[in-house]
């Protein structure tokens, strides 16, 4: 079934070697979300370590990321299939799964110059001294609503960008345009995967 899944981004020309500024489509990697006034307590009861405050993300032992978007909303990057199976209306009062796999495209940007590139399309200060690893900004990127999470990606600073799947090609094209002056280029997701979540590029 998972083989029928497809991302929406035509990545264009892929760089053969990892450039100083790289862009990759992670849209086929696993992710999910939970939301509701009971989400925090249920997720904690499942053994998940949650960031204390909204707009913070932490990475667990398996390299999965738990991003807290508000007091009661969590974005989970990585394989959380176990949680999805454990969930039911009865067992998880006021905690509801979100279809993040399909609602949002997942694009990553990697490179020390990434904050400068992002400053061409986003009005938030993303320099590492003010937006360190684990910081989250939910803001406007090239006039789209987007979630930006700072992380070490490909062994260097970078961002996870999650934004509406239907506009992912548009966002991708904006990023490629913004990267030109820094000689940034798209790469295959494998090129940035190993250091991020320790997962293989298996689909789904």
């Amino acid at each position: 079934m998972a083989a029928l899944r497809k991302g929406f981004i035509d990545t264009g020309k892929i760089a053969p070697v990892l450039p100083a500024l790289a862009l990759a489509d992670f849209s086929l990697k696993s992710r999910t979300g939970f939301k509701g006034s009971g989400a925090a307590s249920w997720l904690a009861a499942q053994g998940l370590v949650l960031p204390d405050d909204p707009n913070q993300a932490c990475t667990d032992a398996q390299g999965r990321m738990v991003a807290r978007l508000s007091w009661g909303e969590f974005l989970l990057l990585g394989d959380f299939a176990g949680l999805e199976k454990a969930w039911s209306y009865e067992s998880a009062p006021m905690c509801f799964p979100l279809p993040r796999q399909d609602s949002h495209a997942w694009i990553v940007v990697s490179g020390e110059v990434a904050p400068k590139m992002m400053a061409k399309i986003c009005g938030i200060d993303l320099r590492p001294q003010v937006f360190p690893k684990g910081a989250i900004a939910q803001t406007s990127v090239a006039r789209l609503n987007a979630i930006i999470i700072a992380d070490q990606i490909g062994g260097r600073g970078g961002f996870h960008l999650l934004s509406d799947g239907s506009t992912s090609q548009y966002l991708w094209d904006c990023l490629v345009d913004a990267m030109l002056e820094f000689e940034g280029a798209p790469v295959r997701s494998e090129a940035l995967s190993k250091e991020t979540h320790g997962q293989t590029d298996a689909q789904g």
Partner: peptide, 10 residues
């Protein structure tokens, strides 16, 4: 209150 200081355009 959720996201901190932001440009009014948001």
């Amino acid at each position: 209150p959720l996201n901190g200081p932001r440009n009014i355009s948001e």
